[in-house]
Structures are given as C-alpha cells and as structure tokens.
Design a protein around this nucleic acid. Structure first.
Lengths: 204, 204
DNA sequence: AAACTATGAACGATCGTTCGTTCAATATGG
DNA sequence: CCATATTGAACGAACGATCGTTCATAGTTT
C-alpha cells in the first residue's frame, strides 16, 4: 500500500481537528471569563490542557483563534434562518423568531462573546467582515418575512423593511446586553419587544 | 502668610485641573484610535505631552482614567435630558429627542467611546455602575415622556413604558453602531427609527 | 524652606511569538 | 513485510517587546 491516504492519514487529521476544536472551546471559555485582550495565549493553552508551543502548531496566532470563533458563530444562526423561511403566516413566523432568537441571546455567554467579537471587529477588518456577514444573513431573512407580510396584507406598508429588520435585531441585541449588565428580566423584555414590534407593523 | 489658600493655592489647583483635562482628552484620543486595552499609559502621556511619571501625579492609574471618562459622559447627556422635560406635546418632544440623540450618536467617536466603556463595564463593576447610571437617566426621562403622552391621550396605552423606553434607546445605540461598522447612512436609519417608534405608539 | 510638579530610568510581570528538540505516526525503498 | 526516511504533533525554555507602576531626583511655586 504505497498510498493508503484515504483512511490512514485521516487518523492524524481527525486527531488534529479534535485538538483544534478543543483549543477553540478553551479559548471561548477564556474570552468569556476574562475578555479577549485580558486572555493570554498561555491561558488558552492551559485551559485546553496543551502546551504553549503546540497551540501554534494548530493556529497561526491568537488573532486567528478569534477569527475562527467569529466564523463558527455563523453556524449558530442557521436554526433561526431556517425558522424565518418557514411557510407560515408572516406574523406567526416573526413572533416565533422574536422568542427563539431572544431566548438564544438571553444566555449571557452568547451576549458576552458577541460583545468581545463586536469590540474587536471595530479595529480588525477580517473580524468585522465576518460579523457583518453573520448579521446580514439574519437581517436579510427577517426583511424577507416583513416584505411577505406586507404583500399578503398582514402588515402595514412599512417604508423601509430592510431598516426595520435591522432595528428589530438591534433591539433584541441591545436588550440582551442590558439584561446581562443590569440583570433585567429577559422574559419581561421579550414581551415588550413583541408588543413593540407588532404594534409597529400592525395595519391601521 | 501661613495659609494663603484662598487664591494662591487655587493657581496651582487650576493648573493641575487643566493638566487633568489635558490627560483625559489625550486618553480619549488614544482609546478611540487603538482601544482601551491596546493603549499604553505611555501612549496617553505622550499624546498629552507630559512625562510618564507625571501622569501618576494626576491619576492613580490607567483604570481611573477610564472611570473619569465614563463619569464625564454623564455631562454630555444633560442636553438630551433637558430636552425631554420640555413642556410640549409628548410626540413633539419624543421626535425631537430621536433626532437630537441620533445625531449625537451619528458621530463615530461617540459610538467608539461608548463601546470601549461598554466592553470594560462588563468586568469592572465601578465602570459598569456609572454606565448603567447614565443609561438609566436617559431611559427614565424617556419613560416619563411616554407616560405623559399616554395620559394626555396622544399615545396608545403601551403595556410597559419603561421597557419601551429602554428599547428605543437600544435601537438608537445599536443603529449607531451598525452605521459605524458597516458605514450605513445614519439619516436613513433615523427616518426608519422615527417611523418605527411612532407606528408603535400610535393609537389604534 | 516647604510643598508641589515634573521627569525618565528602573522594576518585575506578562505579552505574543519563535525556537530547538523529542517522539510517535506515516510514507517510501527494498 | 520490514527497515528507514519524513512528517507533523507536542513540549517548554527563551526572546524581545511592552505592560502598569514605582521611585529617586531635579526643578518650580508659594
């Protein structure tokens, strides 16, 4: 067997992939606990249970670890994206999204991680691009629901559905952040968001 | 003259106060350009045109510089707070606030600084308290306007005016952040916010 | 002279990264 | 199929830079 690459090599490759995942999980834990800039590469290695040098065998550097995390955030959005294309009355889809996404954001870890990425995105273009891309997908799907609701006569003719979609997401995000910082009740907040949004799109 | 404190001392005190202000301005510039954690104390001193050691004559440390900046942010809120207690129809007051506060936030420096403080507020309680306090004042004033509008029959009976005030502020904040990151048009965004809010509070 | 302001060298700690090395898994030549 | 290069994972010491802070010293005001 001169070239058993189909399966033999995949043994190492798989182990390597597992290590990468291990490092990423460790990094997330560190970033959540201490913040990105307060976390040292040694912290990540120690948390992952590997050596400092070995981390650099799997990632070019600290920055790239965060980039990968920001990229993986995209995967977490898929359930919400799928829920938004559900063939049901637009109002129902929208209401479901508000609750589902709101509950996702209600987990403090998601908020904290988002803030770390958000903050770094301002000065690191590659992270900013990924962040905007993730955000854009959600907004676009939400916008489509709004447009459908308008076409089907369920919602009023909002002047700018795209902007409204943006604002809804930002309301959810901002609310989640406030609920973390000031320990507000996220359920109460979700009720308020629901009322706010539906009052704004209700036909006269 | 054993104690010429009445006027003589105030000369030095004034000079010292000016130095403090100089340092704070320099720090703001640095934090805006590089971010809080990426800014070194030497950077601030150099930007202020003073020596490294002298900075420590005016501030106990780097952290305290940010605390002071977060505190001073409160002053910037007073115009908006005053505008919100204006004795005019609630809808007019609200609309004026949305534009004024929106334009304030449209300046990228205000957004960037807010994010630096926001981010640090998560893990530094004293900064968090100040941030929440500033936010609370705006929200409370806005809530009062909403309640007045409801009482006077101008707005619909929103179930939770406090939460709605929160959400409005978060929409403004989030929108401003997006306008910085993705270079969206803030004017377009403000129009959307205006429409969104007034549609949500309009009576049936 | 006493009190305050200003200076920059110096400190210990920690930063992100690189380095030489070891070692087991894999590919290749016989 | 075995012996042998080759590869890449794993390690932790070491590097130079920079971090926030302190300190001894000199200059300036009152």
């Amino acid at each position: 067997m001169p070239k058993p690459t189909g399966e033999a090599e995949s043994k190492r490759a798989k182990a390597s992939a597992e290590r990468r995942a291990l490092i990423l999980e460790a990094a997330v834990r560190c970033f959540l606990e201490k913040g990105y800039h307060q976390t040292g590469v040694r912290d990540i290695a120690k948390q992952a249970g590997i050596s400092l040098g070995n981390l650099y065998n799997h990632f070019p550097g600290k920055h790239d670890v965060l980039v990968e995390i920001a990229t993986l955030e995209r995967v977490e959005m898929t359930p919400f994206l799928e829920a938004l294309v559900r063939p049901a009355p637009a109002g129902e889809v929208l209401g479901g999204f508000l609750r589902a996404y709101g509950h996702y954001l209600a987990q403090p870890e998601n908020v904290l991680l988002a803030i770390e990425i958000t903050s770094e995105a301002l000065r690191k273009p590659d992270i900013g691009e990924r962040f905007i891309a993730n955000r854009f997908e959600i907004v676009a799907a939400l916008e489509a629901v709004l447009r459908r609701g308008i076409e089907e006569g369920e919602f009023r003719a909002v002047p700018d559905p795209h902007q409204m979609a943006h604002l809804i997401v930002e309301m959810l995000d901002g609310g989640a952040y406030q609920s973390v910082l000031s320990e507000a009740n996220m359920d109460t907040l979700l009720d308020a968001i629901d009322d706010f949004v539906f009052a704004a799109i209700r036909r006269h």
